[in-house]
Design a protein around this nucleic acid. Sequence first.
RNA 1: UCCCCGGUAGCUCAGCGGUAGAGCGGGCGGCUGUUAACCGCUAGGUCGUAGGUUCGAAUCCUACCCGGGGAGCCA
Length: 467
Amino acid sequence: MPTSGRARIKDLLSIERLDDAPNPVSVNGWVKTVRSSGGVSFVQINDGSSLADLQIVVDANCPDYALVDALTTGCSVTAFGVLQESLGRGQRYEIVASSIALLGGADPEEYPLQKKRHTLEFLRELAHLRPRTNTFGAVARVRNAMAFGIHQFFQQRGFLYIQTPIITASDAEGAGAMFRATTLNLDDLPTKGGRVDNDADFFGRPAFLTVSGQLEAEIFAQAMSDVYTFGPTFRAENSNTSRHLAEFWMVEPEVAFCDLDGLAQLAEDFLRSIFAYVLETCPEDMAFFNRFYDKELIKTLEDIANSDFERMTYTEAVRVLEGSGESFEFPVSWGADLQSEHERYLTERKIGRPVIVTDYPSSIKAFYMRLNEDGQTVRALDVLVPRIGEIIGGSQREERLDVLQSRMAEAGLDDAPYWWYLDLRRYGTTPHAGFGLGFERTVQFATGMQNIRDIIAFPRTPRNAEF
RNA sequence: UCCCCGGUAGCUCAGCGGUAGAGCGGGCGGCUGUUAACCGCUAGGUCGUAGGUUCGAAUCCUACCCGGGGAGCCA
């Protein structure tokens, strides 16, 4: 079946004037449902190009009419016919088939997807078939649009897209437990002096899957000024929540000659831009999510796209929380990190829109964040959004060699493996800043989906790596 | 990893000490344009796994496995 003559359902359904239709047309897709009434059958198919299905009318005038009995939910078909105004209500156009053929059957006694709603938990066990459902098709299209929107945002601003390594020997301190990448035979480990002989491993040293491309992105920021990464990252944390994955995609811009205020502005512009982009480019899918998953979704995203983010320092946030009169499960005190309930109070109840919290205590943040003049806080930034909580974490980086070295010593880190990172401060150091955005969390927020496992096609979570 | 809830027909669930039910889906048959079509009939389950209590366990107890919600960690 040549694809050159294949019309996409999305394109057919968006035709303005029927005179412009490339009639007769050839369409392909997977059957959603078949309805038969007397001498007419209606075969509703979808090809993934849009949320909407295309109705194919097959009646006695079609030589393949007898074949309709073999068409069941899930099978693939190819059809040829004339696109015309629908005689029935419910769709603008339909195709009156002059031929229709079964490409691949789907035994209705075995095919697990029925023409009714399934729970997301059930569909999660069918990751190979769930893209055919309305919800997962919509997620796939929105995810695609947001990925493109992210690249477009940075490209339009002159940022360079760089690819940082997935296998790494460095640890972006504190970002989380790492997966080991090794070719050693785990059933028969080579030893030297009673310990595992890492010299015998592939790289001659321990290697891991990256938890962040930040340190390498800083290298390129110190040459190209404005860069970003967009790639997979891995965390071996035993996190079992609706917001965590062991493998997820992260967007990490890194900007030279930029301070925390500049970074906060970039983060805000960025989020507002990509939410506006998805509303503009995926209206049908977004209406679907708004209808079935979150009635306030579109309004929420429009509000974000159209209004400034609230900004406050950590110290101010603590003051707000202490004066809130709320009884939190975890006490609020300066020096302790904000708990989920605190973040949600701030962004959901106190402010009602995204909040950028800055200048956290140095004791609870990573060594590379720039120390403030007070010696107590660092130029860190978290962007909190309703329902998800932290969606962006970032900071102005410590560009002063001596301060960075003393911070590393406080954190108990050995300088040696970071020699190249320290070199960036030795030679032409600049004030610079960057943040990390969890891509799945962002799509989760934009779609109103409750569980991050429904945002990535093949979720990796503790004890789950099927597919 | 911790706390709470749940695992019964393909799916969603009811039954909660006396030996299994509904709706949807499937099959068969109707219906001259349907919209998760509709109407009638019908098949289908060692009640997550392994122990235990009991005359008797889907139902009570224990352990484990799996799923969900929340927490921690973070993106």
